[in-house]
Design a protein around this nucleic acid. Structure first.
Lengths: 161, 161
DNA sequence: ATCCATTGGTTCAGAATTCAACTTCTACCG
DNA sequence: CGGTAGAAGTTGAATTCTGAACCAATGGAT
């Protein structure tokens, strides 16, 4: 399948390409919309949840702000605001780092941990219902295989220029 | 592959499932980040661009606000603000609808159309570079096939409750 | 030791987004 | 007809996000 070219040399998308692209866009938006919605009854956003996950999977239930920002693909600024909000909600606490006096840890509080334990099963159920369980194991595998290089490519671009 | 169960009955995700899920999340975020970035030099956001696309593909280069909101998966409120901004930027104009006096059309202006023609090739190139061209035709096809039912499912949920 | 370029993080102002009124008009029911 | 439920859009206030400017600490160079 050779990409169509036109006068100005643009390699426009074929119908198949368009289709794949648009469906990817749609799914990612619809999905975050739905997951967000399923999380709402617990008073959490996807953002909140993702931070809880990251913290609860880390040593000592804490992470350096920068690392957390990198892990969640957010700007430092945004994360800072986010953590402030979560701190006010009692889910998280800031702690100083002795080895580097500029540094701060975001630490899961007891409350944050409890929230996590309570919410996780529902979230997983939600992810299953709206995504995982709608894919055959082969499709899942194919997805993983074909998306991985893209993720790598994009991560590499990320810092650049 | 049987989903693992634990005491409380939660069907946690297997490693493969986790992997597929997380990569999907990452790709969709990294991708919008990158596309946004590639559009920035032209003074457009993805949102702006998507609206231009929708309008330029419609009869008479115009669409009813509601339809546009539905097509772009935004709330009416958000679209309204968005169109106001684009109107101020001269890309779009609001026009009354005679058949329904509540209704409004968002119409592409000459400027909007020109912008579209100028930017589209770059955007397509960007989509190719960061997504399409990194997928084999088979992968593309598989993606389309496996994502379509998900999109349908999510669209069906969308209105519900 | 002293610079100074970098890193880690916050803050502030401006822009975008959400959510809940609110207005106007339509359509339908009795 | 008259009344009213619902649709189409907008508005405004509160929240979140972005990007740049900023401060403080670090880690090398010299």
């Amino acid at each position: 399948m050779i990409p169509m070219e036109t006068e100005n040399g643009t390699r426009w998308l074929s119908d198949e390409e368009q289709g794949a692209w648009r469906i990817h866009l749609d799914v990612s938006r619809l999905l975050t919309y739905q997951l967000e919605r399923d999380l709402q009854p617990f008073g959490l956003t996807m953002n909140d949840y993702e931070i809880l996950v990251n913290l609860s999977e880390s040593e000592g239930h804490r992470m350096r702000m920068s690392d957390l920002a990198a892990a969640t693909l957010q700007s430092k600024s945004r994360l800072s605001h986010q953590i402030t909000r979560m701190e006010n909600a009692g889910l998280v606490r800031r702690e100083h780092c002795e080895s580097d006096r500029r540094g701060l840890f975001a630490c899961l509080t007891e409350d944050g941990w409890e929230t996590m334990r309570k919410v996780a099963p529902h979230h997983v159920e939600s992810v299953r219902k709206h995504f995982i369980d709608l894919l055959s194991p082969e499709a899942l595998d194919a997805l993983h295989t074909s998306l991985t290089p893209i993720a790598e490519h994009l991560r590499a671009q990320r810092g650049r220029v």
